[in-house]
Design a binder for these strands. Structure first.
Lengths: 240, 240
DNA sequence: CCAAAAGTGTTACTATTACACCCATGC
DNA sequence: GCATGGGTGTAATAGTAACACTTTTGG
């Protein structure tokens, strides 16, 4: 019942796709793969090994694309519409990427469900790496994302909605920042993700009142203004 | 790549399990199947036909067990741990239910993921119906649910958490009530699901302020007290 | 008229919003 | 000193919680 490919046993008809969020230069970004010899873009994905739990598979896929381990991630939806993938497109894709002509009974030509995970990573630590089907793995600003293959645009949309919804609820935003950050960094991230301005003074109070920020030394920037404190996220583990 | 069973083509290695909530006698209940010739209980489930979208499959499964169509339902999680099912238990189960001895390469003996849906239905309209593996399909009070097979207890737990979380957020509770109901009915449902008392007067104001309740005629109960108004949920469709 | 349950009004409290003010830093 | 951005205080507002009061029904 499993699918032998590239030396491993994978679960048939199921893939995992990961919407990987990063934050840099006051922009929310996601990682996208560009398939070789095409201008088609997709969210990074992969398959599930017989030996893996779902989340382990997702972590492996994320590590392969970013070099990071122990990433914050969350299931957000299963995409399973009957015709969510376009097999003609898939054939062209594999032809371009691999030079192979997929036969109609190739396992990739069957119906696939995809479990959507979104991941939040520290942009500065990630090392985006293409897979064997793609010639680039790059960051794209969330508000200028081109059309993606299959239903991947809908995936990104739903992932972003979920991120927005849970940003305060689960205090997950810290996973997008480096170990230490200023209150201004934090506010910029919130404003960018929620796409609205927040009042600086109230934002500060609210964040501090949560009791999850540790105030460290001041950051001497060399700029002609008061030096801001640096903060670190403490309390409940940032992962899980 | 698909699995021929009972005359249909089903997607391999994937099932759908439905936590079906109902509300009656001030109790939140779920529907459970009792497998033939055993005392094992499970949440109703099924497989996905090649021709079906995910949600269509879930709706079909729900209709088979309740007789209802167009049910409010929502994906809540994918259960995919490697060893979430116990194959020895499955063998005993099929032996008891069907009299068959599953061979190790039977498709049911492979790893299965299960997409969890929760559904909210009108208790008074449902007609619980067992499937061919079970001799009963019955309501169980949510707070006295026996141990279920596989990871079904965890499914129920997660479904209930999700329901609680979204009860106000998405105004989904109305799907558990008949077409018309009193404010008291509504409050009892909220109190039962959230497992806490609410202030009657404030609850009323809050619900009315949402602008989604239409006040109908009074309900003459014959009781020695003021007759309550009946209400009906209006506004955004209760389904979807 | 009374008990019981439904519906409305009023006050106190708390969280959020908005903005004024003060503090530190490098030129 | 002063321009700039960081940090704190405080009043106004909105939302929630708590409870008193009035209304309706059948006995």
């Amino acid at each position: 019942m499993s699918t032998k490919t590239r030396g491993y046993d994978y679960l048939p008809g199921i893939s995992i796709d990961c919407v990987i969020f990063g934050f840099h230069d006051n922009q929310l970004k996601i990682l996208l793969l560009n398939f070789k010899n095409t201008d088609w873009l997709a969210v990074p994905g992969g398959f599930i090994k017989e030996s893996e739990n779902l989340e382990e598979a997702a972590q492996r896929i994320l590590e392969e694309r970013t070099g990071l381990t122990n990433i914050y991630l969350e299931q957000f939806y299963v995409f399973g519409d009957r015709d969510r993938r376009d097999n003609e497109m898939l054939k062209s894709l594999m032809k371009a990427v691999d030079g192979v002509e997929l036969s109609p009974d190739h396992y990739l030509m069957t119906r696939f469900l995809s479990i959507g995970y979104y991941a939040l990573i520290d942009f500065t630590k990630a090392n985006p790496t293409p897979d064997y089907t793609s010639d680039s793995c790059q960051w794209y600003d969330i508000d200028t994302i081109p059309t993606l293959i299959y239903d991947h645009s809908a995936m990104v949309k739903k992932a972003l909605e979920t991120l927005r919804f849970f940003l305060d609820e689960k205090l997950i935003g810290f996973n997008l920042l480096p170990e230490v950050f200023t209150m201004n960094d934090l506010q910029n991230m919130y404003e960018t993700i929620l796409d609205k301005k927040l009042l600086r003074t109230n934002f500060q109070r609210k964040m501090l009142s949560l009791g999850i920020l540790e105030r460290l030394d001041k950051k001497m920037t060399g700029a002609a203004n008061k030096a801001p404190y640096l903060y670190r996220f403490v309390g409940k583990e940032s992962n899980v």
